[in-house]
Write a protein that binds this DNA or RNA. Structure first.
Length: 896
RNA sequence: GGGCGAAUAGCUCAGCUGGUUCAGAGCGCCUGCCUUACACGCAGGAUGUCGGGGGUUCGAAUCCCUCUUCGCCCACCA
């Protein structure tokens, strides 16, 4: 602790070494045998970043918040666990490695499944720790000894266990349905993974001729190319326009196939023409219509969304959009295109590559969600699961209520292979679901082959709250840390992950995995656009750490975002965003530097049974004031942290440290510290203690600078860390209302003197005399006690108490009616002073008159609480008093 | 189409249960200061019909209705 303390705080020198010391000392590790058992557990599951991820501001935001919470709870004495891990991120990771292969001119199909998976593992082993290392740079206090990867053997076992159990309960099934298909990633997606994007499309009105040549029927469609797979036209059964046509045959143009007109209640007669083409293989609604009417399904597309062999030769091989053009053109040629109108509608896009999703008919595995959603909804309704912001709970409930089955199979190679084996003997053909790998059919002992598909990444993620703790084994960690407490993430992840974790927790563990879900906002640029790679409007958090420090990054995030709002940062002007927090760290550093440099001897304690304890009667008014302010700040900050309102905690601490402690208290104690006044030891004791408390309160948000300062306080040893200190508790005896009010009057007086000086351009170096009169006894005592403070900070040579004003001067009146007079003599511009006083009197008079009418309002006096009425009366009296005082001043100056 | 939210200083936002933080903070702007902790600083200052309208109330930035403008989530109207 003996490094020189420079006047400018340099985070680069402090942060990294300090972080290493924290880790070496095991401060973030849960259930360390060498550490005293702490209180009840507090667990935050870190949303595992994708193993390929590189830290961006979104991570910076979410993990800073989580770290603030976990540090706060740790200091409060909870047995904390912030459990980190990485996600194998099926599609994302596979895409990354496929791109690497592409650079070598290869595809995954060239090298084959086994080699490809090996290749991905190599990639993951090389780069997989990147993001976790980056998290350390921003100060994350996660328990790295417990880091998991969602493809680890333990977690894979949990995945298999969960799959088998769901299957045993009949909640997993394989089915032939329309799913969302990404023609670029060549896999099925869940509904959540197909992100709806509003798109400007067109609505084509096509004429379908009747087979008997008796006319035509117009159908409207947004996807004309799918007509090649139409197997019916549907109308609403009650639609009188078409009821006579039901059963009639259409001769499908271009393909010359005859298809029936059917009646189905799913059709909305008011949309388009009221007649709909039915393509069971390429639209979910049409699929259902097809089932109801036993229509054939014609799959017209390849996995890449090109036209398949099932369509006329001239269309085969065309991309779906090319095919669309071609179909429309041919309809036009045939005179069968009635009209085209623009039409805005939502189209699903792959959440990984943004390709428009193709509804595709295929065999997939699904989880039946309704039975799982029921208890998950109940948990919310009963209050076992809460949300911040609260209204997000309704979002959750709405999703649960409308839940649809979850397609969990993916046609990828990177992931948990589906634990199902099919008997290759066609006579048997049994599908076996198994916890262990099968080499033979349990039914006929024939050869088996495992399902080729892997599971949705989120199928491992939803188990994380317990799989990361050892489930299905009953491990000590599982017993100690399930269920957890708070889950912090972005609202986008609510359905992907949060909602599903609740369902899995209830299903497999019988308890919600966390009781509070905190959904924070998004990082955006100054134009409110999401930060993204493609827009190039991102900010690299590590760049911010390098230039401003991790503390500044964290403070900016935490202080700049209140519950439910987004964080706006300017990517081209980091200075505007991060300098204020950097300046704050520097301010702290310098306040600490000042206090520390004055702590030469032993520091007397403020409380306790020590012989040298500072006694109450030794405290100056300023001491009592700062102690009371400090105590109030402890209360405010603790309450704010507790409610996850970090911006409020931050601003309370900021205000205390900067405005109260640095601007006033440190200025106040200088004469005592320099030996010009007695009581230096008391000032030192109070300054050291209140500063220590304040940096303790700030530590969860700015862990580095506060730890560095704390460790430099006297009596610290290398093995003690602020990170493991106990949270300050408010001390009722410290809230000294009288001292606070008195010192505030002193502040007000100094402020009034300064304002008058500035108003009349009194040179900064010039001392003036001041006199005050008309104050209460309490105020007089305060001014007498703090006379030196008033003189020093107001640059007042002589402070007259209750001395009558003499000569020409500037006047002001304090809120309690105290009259201030600065005899400025020739400096004073009498005309200006008259005008100033006049304006002030007018302002007060208008307050007085509105206050008078308020108080003469019988309704107000009788209905408002007595305390409120009393306060209002006092205000009125005070304002009247101030008017009187100022009017006298004006008279004395001889104002007209 | 269903659900939810937001509008307060030039900018970003606080303001929680209607009245003692009630019109605030930071940034920006103006004036003056290198006062031996800090110019990443100190002191002083200007700036608002609290989106419009209506209502409830003794009292509304705060509660209710309505309009306007933005945003988010969900959704199979082809």
């Amino acid at each position: 602790m003996t490094e020189p303390i420079s006047p400018q705080y340099d985070p680069a020198q402090i942060e990294a070494p300090l972080y290493r010391r924290w880790v070496t000392a095991g401060l973030f590790e849960a259930r360390r045998p060498d550490q005293h058992p702490a209180g009840p557990s507090y667990v935050i599951q870190m949303p595992p970043p994708n193993v390929t991820a590189v830290l961006h501001m979104g991570h910076g935001l979410t993990y800073s918040i989580q770290d603030v919470i976990i540090r706060f709870e740790r200091m409060r004495g909870r047995e904390t666990l912030w459990l980190p891990g990485t996600d194998h991120a099926g599609i994302a990771t596979q895409n990354v490695v496929e791109r690497l292969l592409a650079k070598e001119g290869q595809t995954r199909f060239d090298i084959g499944r086994e080699a490809f998976v090996r290749r991905v593992w190599e990639f993951v082993r090389e780069t997989g720790d990147t993001i976790l290392d980056q998290l350390k740079a921003i100060g994350s206090s996660a328990d790295w000894t417990r880091t998991y990867f969602t493809l680890d053997a333990d977690l894979s076992r949990a995945v298999r266990e969960a799959f088998v159990r769901l299957h045993e309960r009949g909640l997993v099934y394989r089915g032939h349905y329309i799913i969302n298909w990404c023609p670029r990633c060549l896999t099925a997606l869940s509904n959540e993974e197909a992100e709806k994007e509003e798109t400007d499309g067109k609505l084509w009105h096509l004429r379908y001729p009747f087979a008997d040549g008796s006319g035509q029927l117009t159908v409207a469609t947004t996807r004309p190319e799918t007509m090649l797979g139409d197997t019916a036209v549907a109308v609403h059964p009650d639609d009188e326009r078409y009821s006579h046509l039901i059963g009639k045959l259409i001769r499908l143009p271009l393909v010359e196939r005859e298809i029936p007109i059917v009646a189905d209640a799913a059709i909305d007669p008011s949309f388009g023409s009221g007649a709909v083409k039915v393509t069971p293989a390429h639209d979910p609604v049409d699929f259902e219509i097809g089932q109801r009417h036993e229509l054939p399904t014609i799959d017209i597309m390849t996995p890449e969304a090109r036209m398949a062999e099932t369509v006329p030769a001239r269309f085969q091989g065309l991309d779906r959009y090319e095919a669309r053009k071609r179909v429309v053109a041919e309809f036009e040629q045939l005179g069968l295109l009635e009209r085209v109108e623009t039409h805005r509608h939502a189209v699903g896009h792959c959440y990984r590559c943004d390709t428009a999703v193709e509804p595709r008919l295929s065999d997939q595995w699904f989880v039946r969600m309704a039975p799982l959603a029921k208890p998950a909804l109940e948990a919310y309704r009963s209050g076992a699961l809460r949300f911040i912001p609260e209204h997000q709970g309704e979002n959750y409930a709405q999703w649960m209520e409308n839940i649809r089955d979850w397609c969990i199979s993916r046609q990828l190679w990177w992931g948990h292979r589906i634990p199902v084996w099919y008997c290759e003997d066609p006579a048997c053909g049994k599908a076996s679901v198994s916890r262990t790998d099968l080499s033979a059919c349990p039914e006929c002992f024939g050869t088996v082959r495992q399902d080729e598909d892997v599971l949705d990444t989120w199928f491992s993620s939803w188990l994380v709250p317990f799989s990361s703790l050892g489930w299905p084994d009953q491990t000590p960690d599982l017993a100690a840390f399930y269920p957890g407490h708070t889950l912090v993430t972005a609202p986008e992840i609510l359905f992907f992950w949060v909602a599903r974790m609740v369902m899995a927790g209830l299903e497999f563990m019988g308890a919600v995995p966390f009781s509070l879900v905190y959904l924070h906002g998004t990082v955006r640029d100054t134009q409110h656009r999401k930060m993204s790679k493609s827009l190039g409007n991102g900010i690299d958090p590590l760049d911010v750490v390098t230039r401003y420090g991790a503390d500044a990054l964290r403070y900016t995030i935490v202080a700049g975002m209140s519950v439910g709002t987004d964080l706006l940062l300017d990517p081209v002007d980091l200075e505007t965003s991060f300098a204020p927090a950097r300046n704050f760290a520097n301010k702290l550093w310098n306040a600490g530097r000042f206090i520390l440099s004055n702590l030469d001897g032993p520091v007397r304690p403020l409380a306790g049974a020590h012989s040298n304890v500072v006694r109450r009667e030794e405290l100056a008014l300023a001491d009592r004031w700062i102690i009371a302010r400090c105590d109030a700040t402890v209360r405010e900050a603790t309450a704010a942290y507790d409610k996850l309102r970090f911006n409020e905690a931050a601003s309370a601490i900021y205000h205390f440290l900067w405005s109260d402690l640095a601007d006033w208290y440190i200025e106040q104690i200088k004469p005592r510290l320099y030996g010009d006044q007695p009581g230096g030891d008391v000032a030192r004791a109070v300054a050291a203690r209140t500063f220590e408390i304040a940096i303790t309160l700030l530590h969860p948000i700015m862990p580095f600078v506060t730890e560095a300062l704390w460790q430099r306080l006297p009596g610290r040893t290398d093995d003690r860390f602020l990170s493991r200190e106990r949270w300050p508790t408010p001390d009722g005896r410290a809230s000294d209302a009288a001292a606070v009010r008195s010192f505030e009057l002193v502040q007000e007086l100094v402020g009034a003197v300064r304002a008058l000086r500035a108003e009349y351009g009194v040179e900064p170096g010039r001392n003036v005399r001041a006199s005050v009169s008309g104050m209460s006894t309490a105020a007089e005592q305060a001014f007498r006690a703090e006379a030196l403070t008033i003189r020093r900070l107001g640059k007042v040579t002589e402070l007259g108490l209750n001395v009558p004003a003499e000569g020409i001067g500037a006047s002001a009146v304090l809120s309690d009616g105290t009259s201030l007079f600065l005899p400025l003599g020739e400096i004073l511009d009498v005309g200006k002073e008259c005008a100033r006083l006049g304006a002030e009197i007018e302002r007060l008079k208008s307050l007085v008159s509105s206050q008078e009418s308020k108080l003469s309002n019988q309704q107000f006096v009788s209905r408002a609480p007595a305390a409120v009425v009393e306060r209002e009366r006092e205000k009125l009296l005070s304002w009247r008093e101030q008017v009187t005082v100022l009017s006298e001043k004006r008279q004395r100056l001889g104002c007209k």
